[in-house]
């Protein structure tokens, strides 16, 4: 599903974020991406979602070489990837419902289908009662779960998460990780960047370690 072949990424500032990365994720696999801060975890995720392009090598997602995807086709490509961030990236001026509905509206789904899908996603993260609230009324854990609901509402084939539990206390973090496992059980390919070693060991999934590039 996701394949990195001798991928390197150097930023215009000269900083080498990734060097000669070779990794492959099967469809339906769940894996953790770990390594020291600055090892290039975020960069690797960005390359998958086409938020950035590699300096060398190729990134193949769902059989497509990402560098050959036309600029015009990138939005459609991204709709197949659900992304979750450490800071949840929710829109403060919209209700929980409208935040989650955004990807579906972008796809042009009918309102009655949107209603159904948003409620289903809220149900999966156990926040059905909060649909009319605004993000600032929610706790950190709830916000993160709303972010997850938004990422999965359009049933993406791939779910990427960048430090999704970074701001949460251990109980909540475990809870979030189990939510991801649930989506993996439904068939999504899941890749989570995290430096919380204790937590990811507990999950008993494949762990990919990025070593810091020697400069």
């Amino acid at each position: 599903m996701i394949e990195f072949n001798t991928v390197s990424k150097q930023y215009p500032t000269g900083q080498l974020a990734l060097y000669n990365v070779n990794v492959e994720l099967q469809q339906g696999e769940m894996a953790f991406l770990t390594g020291h801060s600055g090892a290039g975890k975020s960069t690797l995720l960005k390359l998958i979602a086409l938020l950035d392009t590699p300096s060398a090598g190729e990134v193949i997602v769902a059989g497509q070489n990402t560098q050959k995807i036309k600029l015009r086709k990138i939005p459609a490509f991204r709709r197949n990837i659900g992304m979750i961030f450490q800071d949840h990236h929710l829109l403060a001026d919209r209700t929980v419902f409208d935040n989650i509905a955004l990807p579906l509206k972008i796809e042009g789904m009918r309102p009655q289908d949107i209603n159904r899908r948003v409620r289903a996603a809220l149900d999966k993260v156990n926040l059905l009662s909060k649909e009319k609230q605004y993000p600032q009324m929610l706790s950190a854990g709830e916000k993160q779960r709303i972010g997850i609901a938004r990422a999965v509402v359009n049933k993406p084939a791939i779910i990427l998460a960048d430090e999704p539990t970074g701001n949460l206390d251990p109980d909540l973090a475990t809870d979030i990780m189990h939510t991801f496992k649930q989506f993996n059980d439904y068939g999504s390919t899941v890749l989570i960047a995290s430096h919380d070693h204790a937590l990811i060991k507990e999950m008993k999934k494949r762990i990919i370690v990025l070593r810091k590039v020697k400069t």
């Binding site: 939005p75 459609a76 991204r78 992304m83 990236h89 955004l102 990807p103 972008i106």
Partner: peptide, 14 residues
């Protein structure tokens, strides 16, 4: 700006 960025992240076309 934030809304534009988030929309782009979740696959909104230009």
């Amino acid at each position: 700006k934030e809304e534009i960025e988030v929309s782009k992240l979740i696959g909104a076309s230009a």
